[in-house]
Design a protein around this nucleic acid. Structure first.
Lengths: 230, 230
DNA sequence: GGTTGGAGTTGAACATGTTCAACAACGGTC
DNA sequence: GACCGTTGTTGAACATGTTCAACTCCAACC
């Protein structure tokens, strides 16, 4: 019974959509986002301009498709590395390094990802329905990095850490966008050093003596984590 | 001798530019950024479309002019409040509250400020020459908040704090952009609580016992503060 | 086989940011 | 006052994201 595993054959529309995405990703890679016009995408996909808009309401949604692809690549790159590490700092480092490596080819136009991520209207924004999946999966990855590590974390903190770490990773990406150093040396240095600090801070915060302080921070995060809620 | 204080009379061009800015700000306020077209701005300013582009290379630069106006308003609102506070937490709170009040009328399109701020190419980005002034003045304001307070801060830390606090304020603004709660309650709550935590952390970090740890953090910040440097 | 309704597709049209060659106004110089 | 270079100004043209009414294709149904 392999029925459940066999996806239905792609419809004509699905194949067309796939062609459009592929064309767009290739053009983005080659020319960047702004320089890639919808007409170029349509032509490269062997499709009319209007047809591209039949599948993607606007250009941003093509970017969202691209973003998802990058995200999948990150997951695929990070998980095998996690399997080889125990120490928390190493595991966090594995996740972040995988991220930096995956996004490196797109440095020249990755600012776009970020601008969209900061825009409440954009499908890339983690609070937007269309972008929520990626954020959730990103947090999930950090959750795996935590649970698989040799470090024990109190449960109240453990509940909030994945979200915090995901936010941290967004901050790193923002730094990386502006990083002009060769080989993105500064971003890697920042990751190396902050990852150590975070691991230390987590161990410290797990100390029973610090429970009251920890509670206060966890409460703050829990209360205010979702600005979009009322 | 009041010569130095008397600015030269505005040239024709300066007056035209002023009219364009004024028209743009009013239209932004009324309709938001995207919905305001350059043609609308030109017409409202009583000027041809091409002429608007003579003064502002692109629409983003009009947004930059708007951003500067908001920034000036923030400085003007924050400084008198600082004069009435001594405690560090109160002073930080004064600066942040002034900021939130000043930007509140523009909540609907303020995401634009942020997207531009995150974009290395944009004039709003603090690492971009055109946006650097605003960032510097923002840090300066935090420097005033610090030096005027009753709290003593070790000099190594004092050198880095304004920049860190400015970064913190950007984070608050990012949160505020997504805040849908009535009266922006959640953002205010976040400010209230984080400002306390920051003041406590600064006092804690000033403790001589923590000098090694503080040195480590200060060094990290100093080394990596400017991603755009090589 | 004909009909029908939805999915897929097209090209033209539109709105808007941006550019540009040409023109006008102005201020200084002789 | 005539000349001239700089500053200011214009409207048309262009590129590109987006929309839309019309068309084709195709599978399901009678």
């Amino acid at each position: 019974m392999t029925d459940a595993a066999v996806p239905p054959p792609p419809s004509k529309g699905e194949r067309t959509k796939e062609r459009i995405v592929a064309a767009a990703l290739e053009l983005f890679r080659a020319h960047g986002y702004e320089a890639t016009t919808m007409r170029m995408v349509a032509e490269a996909a062997g499709v009319s301009l209007g047809n591209a808009y039949y599948y993607f309401e606007n250009k941003d949604l093509l970017l969202a498709a691209f973003y998802r692809e990058v995200h999948e690549a990150h997951l695929a790159a990070a998980r095998p590395r996690l399997a080889r590490k125990r120490a928390l700092a190493d595991r966090l480092s594995a996740v972040m390094t995988a991220k930096l490596e995956v996004i490196e080819p797109y440095h020249r136009f990755s600012a776009l990802m970020f601008r969209s991520a900061a825009d409440p209207e954009s499908p890339l924004n983690p609070f937007h329905p269309a972008g929520a999946d990626i954020a959730r999966e990103g947090e999930q990855l950090f959750a795996e990095a935590l649970t698989g590590s040799s470090t024990r974390v109190p449960s109240d903190l453990a509940a909030e850490l994945p979200g915090l770490l995901w936010t941290y990773s967004m901050g790193i990406v923002l730094y990386w966008i502006h990083d002009r150093s060769p080989g993105r040396r500064k971003t890697h240095a920042l990751v190396d050093r902050t990852v150590e600090m975070i691991a230390s801070a987590i161990k410290l915060a797990s100390n029973p003596l610090l429970r009251p302080f920890r509670k206060k921070v966890v409460e703050l995060v829990r209360d205010l984590r979702f600005p979009t809620e009322v």
